[in-house]
Amino acid sequence: MTARTNASGLGPAALEAVNLSKRYGSNQALLDCTLTIPAGRVAALVGPNGSGKTTFLHLVVGLLEPTSGEIAVFGDTVGRDAQALTSVAFLAQDKPLYRNFRVREMLRFGRDLNPRWNGELARQRLDELEIPLDRKVGRLSGGQQTQVALTLALAKQPSLLVLDEPLADLDPLARHDVTRHLMAAVAETGLTVLLSSHVVPDLADTCDWLVVLNRGRLQVSGDIDELLASHHLLVGPADGADAVAAEQQVVTRHTVGRQASLLVRGSAPAAGPDWTTRPVELEELVLTYLRDPAATALQPAMCQN
């Protein structure tokens, strides 16, 4: 794959997938996904359980081989260019660590296996978190284990950090801590983050790019602000809905009793006097798309026609 430049023209995109598909036997886990995530973004990958999120992330980090299509990280094809391994760090869903290692030994593991390893950063983080280096990993709390796993990922100094459900199984306090540290790292280093989640409200404050997967197909990929600005909800009488819909780019349409609500795309849609127009929230947007798997909104426009 040749390195394509992102929208701003500043070097290759953090992530570029072209016609990416993955099939397990007769189960099509991911079908024909083409998307680009520009560098420097914090991208949220959302979708219901079984929508192919984990499969997609495993393809990004090279744990899986695509059935067809290609995927590249900063222009390096995953699975072919060794560089792709160095520039990506991955935090798997179950936060795997060697339970019989001491925390110090986990750091040694990171140092030995990564040329860009920043041991100073790792020790400083664990020190701040008051996680003792001599403790066995298996004796740490769930939140502490997540923090150690995240520390390993950050000390690798990746250009792209991939996190699979990083906040699942954490209590609210730990959840807040992890998010805060993650955002601090993003602010300091400008790394690109791709994280999956099924909790949409958590994402609104931290993410600026949205990817929606549904039943193995890509539904949405775009800048969150732009997505919110370009989508509106039109609510009005059901009998006039056809006429309004004909003039708008309708994403989804729901009729309840005599009232119809249309999610439409485009800037400042104009409808009749019986109609009210209001902006949508992120969660509403995601849920509306998920209810209608055939609808898509993909950005940049070159991705799919």
């Binding site: 495993h58 798997a92 796993a149």
Partner: peptide, 8 residues
């Protein structure tokens, strides 16, 4: 394996 095989 997901940890070991995603190092450099």
């Amino acid at each position: 394996n997901k940890l070991a095989w995603t190092q450099s």
